[in-house]
């Protein structure tokens, strides 16, 4: 039973890492850039939602919607103003730009909202479910998170695999020159990719912020970047489904370790896992294997 609870609790947390990983995957797919400012961007948009909900008594759903819209705009602006100039340069340039943006966002958030800790109340209860006398480490709020992430995943699948817009976005990412010759406005698709990613990130931020008291802090989401990045790498950085499965793997593994070993080992484990994955399957577990036919 203990183990089962570890799996449930770990998987639920893993879905949170997955939400973060999804945002990374979306940007990787559209521009081949790992967005190290993702944590900063979603911290910022979550603070905007928090400001409305916690300080001005606005409805939770309105706060969530505003945070997501703020995310869409922030993503588009960042791509247009900061990423566009370095998009065709060496990959390291984009890495430095996103790292710089992370620091700027954290500093600005500190200036506006202070560096203290505050809480973002969850929409649903965090009290665990009971089955008979047994406690199941799963709560209505986590159920909401799982459903929200699954809905996003299905929506992304429909967008990318079934819609003409998604086809344009994929073509722009894989081969910008050919896409342009076929009449695709590639610049617009890249902006849209970043906007979408930041919107998903904003949703993730609000969901995550409610899972623990005192989560809101300019550096509060830093740990998520490492966990979310590891989840995305396990999934191959290219696959939304891979990101979710990667997130669950990371979540469950950490929870089992906490329970049976010690939570001191978490940082070591997560980096070791990242290293091993990059060594044995640098394209991730879910990378499509291409079979060449002669």
């Amino acid at each position: 039973m203990n183990f089962l609870n570890d799996v449930i609790y770990g998987a639920a947390n893993g879905v949170i890492y997955a939400a973060f990983a999804l945002a990374l995957v979306l940007i990787w797919r559209s521009t081949r850039i790992v967005n190290f400012s993702q944590g900063g961007m979603l911290m910022f948009t979550t603070f905007i939602g928090w400001e409305l909900v916690q300080r001005h008594g606005v409805n939770y759903w309105v706060g969530l919607a505003v945070a997501i819209i703020a995310g869409l705009l922030l993503g588009a602006i960042v791509e247009r103003l900061l990423v566009r100039p370095v998009e065709n340069g060496p990959p390291l340039n984009a890495v430095i730009v996103t790292l710089g943006l992370l620091l700027v966002l954290q500093a600005v958030a500190g200036m506006i909202w202070g560096n203290g800790l505050s809480s973002y109340a969850p929409r649903f209860s965090l009290n665990y479910y009971h089955v008979g006398h047994r406690v199941i480490l799963f709560s209505p709020d986590y159920l909401f998170i799982v459903i929200a992430v699954l809905v996003v995943l299905v929506a992304l699948f429909v967008l990318f695999q079934l819609s003409p817009l998604g086809l344009r976005m994929r073509a722009s990412a894989f081969n910008p020159e050919v896409a342009r010759l076929l009449g695709v406005r590639v610049g617009r698709m890249l902006t849209l990719g970043w906007a979408l990613a930041a919107g998903v990130g904003a949703l993730a931020g609000v969901l995550i912020a409610g899972t623990a008291p005192n989560y809101m802090n300019p550096n509060g989401f830093d740990e998520l970047l490492i966990l979310g990045f590891t989840a995305a790498v396990i999934g191959g950085l290219d696959s939304p489904v891979g990101a979710v499965v990667g997130g669950v793997i990371v979540g469950v593994a950490l929870q089992v370790l906490d329970d049976y070993v010690s939570n001191d080992i978490d940082p070591f484990f997560i980096f070791a896992l990242l290293l091993v994955i990059l060594m044995i399957r640098p394209n991730g577990i879910f990378a499509r294997r291409t079979v060449r036919r002669v």
Binding site: L167, R170, F174, A179, L182
Partner: peptide, 19 residues
């Protein structure tokens, strides 16, 4: 040839008519 190797045959073709 410039076909987009990551897309399927039909996706490549559909892309041509999208505009």
């Amino acid at each position: 040839r410039g076909v987009i190797t990551e897309l399927t045959v039909e996706e490549n073709l559909r892309l041509g008519g999208l505009w």
